[in-house]
Design a protein around this nucleic acid. Structure first.
Lengths: 216, 216
DNA sequence: ATTATCTATAGATCTATAGATAATGC
DNA sequence: ATTATCTATAGATCTATAGATAATGC
C-alpha cells in the first residue's frame, strides 16, 4: 500500500506505461483540434487515433471535455514556457512583446503541430490562463504603464494581435508558398503600430536579433 | 400543379406558414451559435428552441450543417448589406474601411444579436464569402493598390482587424460597463495604424462623422 | 498480487423516417 | 385535395461500465 503515484517520471515500468497511454490520448486530442475536428470527435475516434483500447480512456479522464482541457493546457503551457525561456533577461516592454510575437509566429516553421493546434483552437485561446494570452496581456499592460503603448484597451489590442497571429499561422498552413518568415516580423511591426508605437520605432523593434529558438 | 414555390413573399397563407417555420429554425440556430453552443446542439435542441415539432426540421433542411450554413449566410449577408447601404458613395479606401469597421463595432449596441452571433462564430467568419470579410479584404487591397495602406499581406491584416473587432464585441458582451462606443473609434484608429496609415491621419479618419445607422 | 489495458455490452442519446393530425387551397 | 406540421419509433451512434486479459511488481 505504498504511496507511489508519481506517473510522469519513470518510477517503474507500470507507471511509465500508464503515462505513455495518457500521453497518447493527449497527443490524439491535440491532433484532432489541429485537424479542426475540435471537441466534436467521439471518444471512440479519440482512442482510435491514440491507438489504445476504448475503455482505457476512462482510466485517465472522466470526459472528453476534461481531456481537451488537459491537452490545451499542456500545449499552451509548453509554448508559454518556451517564450519565457527565450525572453529571459528582456526588460523593455515593447521589445518583450515583439520578441514573444515573433517567436510565436515562427511556430509555423519551428513547431508546426503547435501552430496547427492554435489555428484549430482559434480565439478561444484568449479565454485560457495559459500560453501567449496572459503573457502578452501582461506585456501590453506594462507597456501602457510606462507610456510605450498609447492604445487604451489592452484586451481589445490583445485580441487584434492574436487575430493577426492566427491569420498568419492559418495562411501559412494553407498556402505555405505565400508566407515567408519575414511576414512574421512585418506582423510584429504592424502590431506595434497598432499598440501606438511610432512607425520607425516599430520597424526597428521588429527587426532586432532574436534569441535562439529551440527546435525539437 | 401550378408552379408557385416562392416561399419567402406571402404568396398565400400556406407559404407564409412554411416560411415562418423555416425562419424559426434559422433564428434558433443563430441564437445557439450566439450562445456558444455552436453546431454541437442536437436537432432536438434546435427544434425545441424554435418551438416547432421535431420532424418539421426535415421539411426544411437535410442536416444541422446545412441549417447552420444557411443561418450564417443570412446573418452575415444582412450585416454586409447594411454596411453596403451605409457606405454607398464613399470612394476613398481608407475612409471606406474605417466606416465599415466603425459600423461593425457598433453592432454591439445597434444589433446585439448579430454581435453575439459573431463572437460565437469567431474567426471562422473569415472563411465565408459573406459579411465583413470579403468586403474588408476588398477595401484593404484597394488601399494597398493606391498606396494608402503600406502593409504587405492583406489577409493577415484582415485577420488582425477581425480579431480586434471580435475582441471588442466579446468584451462588450461580457463587461458592458468596460466598453464605451468611443472604443470602437479607437479600434478603427489603431487598425488604420496597423495597416500603415500615419497616426495623425488615422486619428482623423476614425473620427469622421458616420452615416446614419439603421436600428431596427 | 496488483495494476492497466482491452473487449463486449447495456443504456442513453441522436438521427432520420413513417404515418397520423391539422391547416389551408380550391 | 393538398400541404405542412406533429408524434412516435426504428436504427444508428455514443457513453460509461463490467468483466476478462495482459503486463508488471514483489
Amino acid at each position: 500500500m505504498a504511496v507511489q503515484t508519481n506517473g510522469a517520471l519513470g518510477a517503474n515500468r507500470l507507471d511509465r506505461r500508464k503515462a505513455h497511454t495518457r500521453q497518447a490520448l493527449v497527443d490524439a486530442a491535440v491532433g484532432l483540434i489541429a485537424d479542426g475536428r475540435g471537441d466534436r470527435a467521439s471518444i471512440q475516434e479519440i482512442t482510435e487515433a491514440a491507438d489504445i483500447g476504448f475503455g482505457s480512456f476512462y482510466n485517465h479522464f472522466d470526459s472528453k471535455e476534461q481531456l481537451f482541457e488537459t491537452a490545451s493546457e499542456e500545449v499552451l503551457e509548453c509554448w508559454g514556457q518556451m517564450i519565457d525561456r527565450a525572453c529571459a533577461g528582456i526588460s523593455d516592454s515593447a521589445k518583450l512583446f515583439a520578441v514573444s510575437l515573433r517567436i510565436s509566429g515562427r511556430l509555423a516553421w519551428t513547431h508546426p503541430e503547435i501552430a496547427r493546434f492554435l489555428t484549430g483552437a482559434g480565439l478561444k485561446i484568449l479565454d485560457l490562463p495559459y500560453g501567449l494570452a496572459p503573457r502578452a496581456l501582461r506585456d501590453i499592460q506594462a507597456g501602457q504603464a510606462v507610456g510605450q503603448f498609447t492604445i487604451s484597451n489592452a484586451e481589445i489590442a490583445l485580441s487584434a494581435v492574436s487575430g493577426g497571429l492566427l491569420g498568419l499561422l492559418r495562411l501559412r498552413e494553407r498556402h505555405p508558398e505565400r508566407v515567408e518568415e519575414s511576414a512574421v516580423d512585418e506582423l510584429a511591426e504592424a502590431s506595434l503600430r497598432l499598440l501606438g508605437v511610432r512607425a520607425p520605432e516599430a520597424k526597428r523593434l521588429a527587426r532586432l536579433p532574436l534569441p535562439p529558438i529551440e527546435t525539437w
